[in-house]
Design a protein around this nucleic acid. Sequence first.
RNA 1: GCCUUGGUGGCGGAACUGGUAGACGCGCUGGAUUCAAAAUCCAGUGUCUUCGGACGUGAGGGUUCGAUUCCCUCCCAAGGUACCA
Length: 1036
Amino acid sequence: MNYDFREIEAKWQKYWAENETFKAFSDSDKPKFYALSMFPYPSGAGLHVGHPLGYIATDIYSRYKRHKGFNVLHPMGYDSFGLPAEQYAIQTGQHPAITTENNINRYREQLDQLGFSFDWSREVRTSNPQYYKWTQWIFIQLFNSWYNKKSDKAENISSLTSIFEKEGNANVEAACDDDTPSFDAATWNAYSEKEKQQILLKYRLTYLADTEVNWCPALGTVLANDEIVNGVSERGGHPVVRKKMTQWSMRITAYAQRLLDGLDKIDWPQPLKDSQANWIGRSVGASVTFNVLDAERSRSDQDVTSSAVEKSQESVINPPYQIEVFTTRPDTIFGVSFMTLAPEHELVAKITTPEQKVEVDAYVEATAKRSERDRMADVKTISGVFTGAYAEHPFTKEPIPIWIGDYVLASYGTGAVMAVPCGDQRDYDFAKHYNIAIPNIFEGVDISEEAFADKETTVIANSDFLNGLSYKDAMKKAIAELEKIGHGEGKVNYRLRDAVFSRQRYWGEPFPVYYVDDMPQMIDLEHLPLQLPEVEKYLPTETGEPPLGNATEWAWDVKQCTVVNNQLIDYKTVFPLELNTMPGWAGSSQYFNRYMDPRNDEAIFSPEAINYWQDVDLYIGGSEHATGHLLYSRFWQKFMFDMGYVPKDEFAQKLINQGMITGTSAFVFQIIPGIRRKIEKNNFIGKGSLFSPLFISAEKVDLLEEEHGKLGYVEADKSKVVFDFIRERIEDLSKFNFYDESEKVEYELNFKILRHRVPIDMLKGTSDILEIEKFKDSSMYSSYSDAEFLFNDDGEYETHREVEKMSKSKYNVVNPDAICEEYGADSLRLYEMFLGPLEQSKPWNTAGITGVHSFLKKLWKLYSPVIDSDAERSRSVTEAEPTAENLKTLHKTIKKVEEDIENFSFNTSVSTFMICVNELTTQKCTSKAILEPLAILVSPYAPHIAEELWSRLGHSESIAEAPFPKFEEKYLVESSKEYPISFNGKMRFKLELPLDMSKEDIEAAVLAHEKTKEQLQGREPKKVIVVPGKIVNIVG
RNA sequence: GCCUUGGUGGCGGAACUGGUAGACGCGCUGGAUUCAAAAUCCAGUGUCUUCGGACGUGAGGGUUCGAUUCCCUCCCAAGGUACCA
């Protein structure tokens, strides 16, 4: 009988579902094990082959743990709020809920086909109101909390107000806004209700604040960095600027230190911990304040110092502007020769002198167009503008010029730096570029070529009271002196910023918030969930409000406690609701706890459930979530812990990053002809509408000679073919330029090349060749339906291929359905594991799948004599005693597979199974004592075939909980070893020797061997290294 | 730019704390079976070679009796870089 995987897999999937084989119970005598895979975002492209990689790994481990006697919780759900569904809604008008439902159904179908041991009764969906009720609930808990640094935990806001009422905020140590004023009890008690609320917002763990966003005026919306390409929006190519906006933020910075410390307690990959630690970015140094000199005075030559001192003494009456900087090198304070502010810094407008205003304004505007990432990455271009203003050095009282520069980011630290060019390369380069002084404050160091940043060998000079001190001593001393004169203090700074929690989107959790007199009010738990309203359009409103601004039923009636029509808003009993929604990470930050008790409508989970399951034992997911989901989840878990809702302050003990399966994206090249002035190298590019779009085959791009970066191309012999192709299609070159004939300059044909992604299903089979018709016919490229193509020498259009992460947005996804159909789920599961180490990223290529499929066929064949329907014959073979060889093969396999599973090295287990089956087949093994344990070993990996073999071996129960075979060393004991004999580290021949032979005897035996003499050719060995049981190396 | 990971035959990869480089599988070559094909089975398969052997794990250097493994410098690719999920 043949291996009929279709029948077998359908049969067992049905059996598992009907018998609820994998249902987890929150009470059991067995030890608990909680295995979790990161839940997917259900995209319209369906599940792709990258998704199951982690799921299969988690599933193998879960099934293994069941064999090992654990009560396993292995749930699955959907992270179903998100941008793609909303984009789709904008394009088609289809409600995201419908799209999402369809996508989920498709995902479920695909997941079911793969035979996962999920407990589907616990499924969650973040976009389900029964689920997001609890996301809203957590938001309210955070709103009602503040962070007390004295107790080092979050507390209810009521404990804060009671302190305020008694003693004001002088003694409160809290995580709060920098601009929080100080007040006494009387002042607090005299505040109006609104003033009190405004103060409390500065303390709450979620609060309203002005934060910078990427604003795209043309689209009327905020864009992710991801959606911006080369400074313009990916959709439509519109300009994008940085803009301030009032948004909800999460005070994650309150937990910075605990998030950092907690990393030591969890078994997560070191690179992931590193990236969280870097993200949090703790640095120790000092905050220093510089007074800004009055513009009039700083320009007068006379008596700058004394007038400044006077001024600062009068500061109570007329305080000067102050610039606060954070520095990790307060020891170099005497090396400061200028300051740089971020162009967005609020003081820039206030201190810029009239003479510099034009230049500064232009620079600020130009900077607003650059993304943060761009500014960080670009270290080659040095740019900045002098504001005309000066600050006063806190010790020397010398005036220091204040510059602005886009290398200083507003969101990092205080948005200002004190520049010490002799000690920091960036400052050094800036000073050199703008001819600013570079005072040397290091003993015996030459700074004529570059800055000196080695803390270890630093000896300070030219620095008054710091002279002669080392880095460490100077640091302490400088901080002490700064504190003495009230110009600074020692400080620990974190790079981590509070997380913006508002999105100007439709498809996300609504905030349970309405506004009374502009102050946010929370809706009571009993009225939750606050459901997403219906809207006609998913775009921002014409006045630039978020999509919820389109809703007509979006006001809160505090009397009836219900959502009512906007027209009823009277600001007395009916108030406007919040128009933003929550970000993608809101729903995923506690989902792992919700799985413990997902249908509970009274609480986020019951105390019984959380106390039984505690935390996640094993979490598998991608490393790309390192500083998003995985950091926010840890933050919320710590908050939940502080509130006493969860028993563990870290939600996952062990975490494994599965590597990505990379896809191979395809690109086509469009050329847009234009004219270039030969002398000045100016390009005039464009006028695409005058001819059909032109595309050139990938290898033709290589023919083009690149000149001056990406824009310039010159005609050369080899590129003639491309130039001719373009010329043929342009009858009149003068259409492309408008130059004055009288100009005595030469012009030449030139063009710019645009890369477009094309979906890989537009390619012929697995080749790089584009199917022209598919491309022209697709709705995506409707504007290219009359395109012309320059083919390669074979008359085909070849695309350019690039390896990238597999993602719908890159049009390079491959889905598993076809493979499942042709080879079955067990083959796919084995194959995905066989591809390579779980943690590493690897390209997808189906070429090798026949290998694992034929392994399954061989496995089936091995069992055939035993499970044959001829009962009489079957019995006679099954009772065969296992041979020593059989037992050796089996136990070798048990040992290796168990080690592999414990080490998450699933690829090597698959090889081990292949070797085992090959050996047992050669041995003609028919012993049940061997084949039964083997079925259990295989079952976590290929559960369907294992169940079928198990049942045919005569079992009526599922294999799922059969005990894992026990490894016994005694079957593997060897008496001799085939020693590799190497000369100078190179293996030359092998020699079989008893394992109990002594070092000396081995050496003697090897030296006496004739091949040794042959190798040495009469030379005397200088040294002989014998490692018993391993190797012999002869040097000579 | 910065942080992280990786680079081994034609391809995916193996080699556990430094000890036989290329397990296992794909592909390829030859053979058996077959009217033929598919499927299956058997043998071979890193490169060069004067058939003794020599070389070989991104490049260059170092430590060591011995390096894919440890150290230094460099190159290349991928992921992240705060509103994709």
